[in-house]
Amino acid sequence: MPSCRESTRLMSEARERALTRGERVGLRLHLLMCAGCRNFGKHLDFLRGAAQAYVPGAAADDEAANPDSTSVMHESDAPTGR
């Protein structure tokens, strides 16, 4: 069975290639027993989503535009309140 280091490698590579059957079986076994690596897998999905949503330098702009508020006036579909 793969170690945590190996398992994170397999989860990373799975984003660029299909894993072999043996790799998938080993990884699944490891994930059954390892909460840390299960979290890592979820975080990889999040990283991709964040990278795609990222606009370079946007954070600095927003702050310059609204130095003392976090409100985003122009998001017409934003609900009022959380």
């Binding site: 793969p2 170690s3 945590c4 280091r5 190996e6 909460a35 840390g36 690596c37 979290n39 890592f40 979820k42 975080h43 999040f46 989503g49 964040a50 949503a53 990222y54 370079p56 330098g57 946007a58 954070a59 600095a60 927003d62 702050e63 976090t70 985003v72």
Partner: peptide, 29 residues
């Protein structure tokens, strides 16, 4: 090849909500 205890990935609560926060993008960058 096991995580060091302090480095084991934790559960993140509602990570998607972070994408709407300006401060998150500072940290990301």
């Amino acid at each position: 090849g096991h995580w060091h205890l302090s480095e084991q990935p934790a559960g993140w609560r509602e990570p998607e909500a972070s994408l709407r926060e300006t401060q998150f993008w500072h940290v990301f960058e």
